[in-house]
Amino acid sequence: MHVRKHDNIKEIRIDKLERLCVMPDEQNFSFIWRSAMEVHWDEKGKFLYSPKPREWSYFDWYRQILDATKDEYGCCLVLTNETSWIDIPIALKEQILSYVHS
Results as ranks from 00 to 15, higher is better:
residue 15 D to I: 10
residue 1 M to T: 09
residue 78 V to I: 12
residue 58 Y to W: 00
residue 56 W to C: 12
residue 79 L to I: 05
residue 87 D to K: 09
residue 42 D to L: 01
residue 32 I to Y: 03
residue 53 P to F: 07
residue 98 S to D: 10
residue 72 E to N: 13
residue 99 Y to R: 00
residue 90 I to T: 11
residue 69 T to N: 01
residue 74 G to P: 10
residue 59 F to D: 02
residue 49 Y to I: 06
residue 24 P to V: 11
residue 51 P to R: 12
residue 35 S to E: 15
residue 49 Y to N: 07
residue 34 R to G: 08
residue 44 K to T: 13
residue 55 E to C: 03
residue 77 L to T: 02
residue 96 I to L: 10
residue 101 H to M: 02
residue 2 H to K: 11
residue 99 Y to A: 12
residue 96 I to Q: 05
residue 35 S to V: 08
residue 36 A to E: 14
residue 50 S to R: 02
residue 76 C to T: 09
residue 12 I to F: 01
residue 61 W to F: 14
residue 88 I to E: 04
residue 87 D to W: 00
residue 92 L to Q: 03
residue 57 S to V: 04
residue 56 W to T: 04
residue 67 D to Y: 10
residue 48 L to N: 04
residue 28 N to V: 14
residue 1 M to L: 13
residue 14 I to N: 06
residue 8 N to A: 14
residue 36 A to W: 00
residue 33 W to L: 09
residue 66 L to P: 00
residue 21 C to P: 12
residue 60 D to R: 00
residue 99 Y to S: 08
residue 52 K to C: 14
residue 5 K to R: 10
residue 68 A to L: 06
residue 83 T to G: 08
residue 69 T to C: 03
residue 93 K to Y: 01
residue 14 I to F: 08
residue 71 D to T: 08
residue 32 I to T: 09
residue 77 L to H: 00
residue 24 P to E: 08
residue 76 C to P: 00
residue 40 H to C: 08
residue 22 V to D: 09
residue 16 K to Y: 01
residue 52 K to W: 00
residue 93 K to T: 05
residue 5 K to M: 06
residue 60 D to T: 11
residue 16 K to D: 15
residue 43 E to V: 14
residue 19 R to N: 13
residue 82 E to H: 08
residue 71 D to M: 07
residue 8 N to Y: 06
residue 7 D to F: 02
residue 91 A to C: 00
residue 86 I to A: 07
